[in-house]
Design a protein around this nucleic acid. Structure first.
Lengths: 114, 114
DNA sequence: CGGTATCCGATAGGATACTG
DNA sequence: CAGTATCCTATCGGATACCG
């Protein structure tokens, strides 16, 4: 029936849109991926995430920090060292990343074979 | 080691960015979800995907069709009936959607509990 | 090193009106 | 019903320059 379809659809749509709101844009997931292998410094992330500018990384890191996905740490050494790391909450994104990676590979192959 | 980290990171980053390029924006995945339960007509999708305008749906459906994720069918009846359906290729997005749904629920709970 | 400030163009996306 | 046309704003994202 149509009504059941609609209700079922909503149950998926709402959380997916919640997720998309937080992960939107070109850079958030790439940044998170770069951090999956351990905390990194600003300059290291710039090198890892090809094409990102200082300005975008700065802005995106702030967004991610506000949303509780990234933790910024200032080491009180001289000179000061600043690192970014994933929070436990963003480590739960592993499934999303793996699904996207796997589909992206499939899609890439498909596109190249056309 | 750092070099291994970098290489491993690239192996994930490239396909994920391929995927993001195709699925970017606010509406593509919601539209695909709405179509997961079977082909739908334009007006039905508008109703299902809350908040989308005619203009955006029109544009996004065209994008999805170009990328081989949606199939548009014109039934030669009177009056003409037009439907949109997922292609086999976009059905392989199930894993991505399920991962996002599951993480979105977790994230929603976390946000509301703060 | 780890950013911020400023400026700018391109795109996303919304509102409204209209059409065959 | 299934869109298109037009217009508008907001945000994305790049370039460049600069700072402590």
């Amino acid at each position: 029936m149509d009504e059941r379809n609609h209700v079922q659809c909503l149950g998926i749509l709402r959380p997916v849109r919640d997720a998309l709101d937080v992960l939107n844009g070109k850079w958030k997931l790439p940044i998170i991926i770069a951090l999956t292998f351990g905390e990194k410094r600003f300059g290291e992330i710039v090198k890892e995430v090809e094409g990102i500018t200082d300005r975008m990384l700065s802005k995106e890191l702030r967004d991610l920090e506000i949303n509780g996905l990234v933790k910024r740490t200032v080491y009180d050494t001289y000179p000061v060292k600043i690192t970014y790391a994933l929070t436990p909450h963003s480590q739960s994104l592993n499934g999303v990343i793996e699904a996207l990676r796997s589909w992206g590979e499939l899609h890439g192959k498909k596109v190249r074979s056309e």
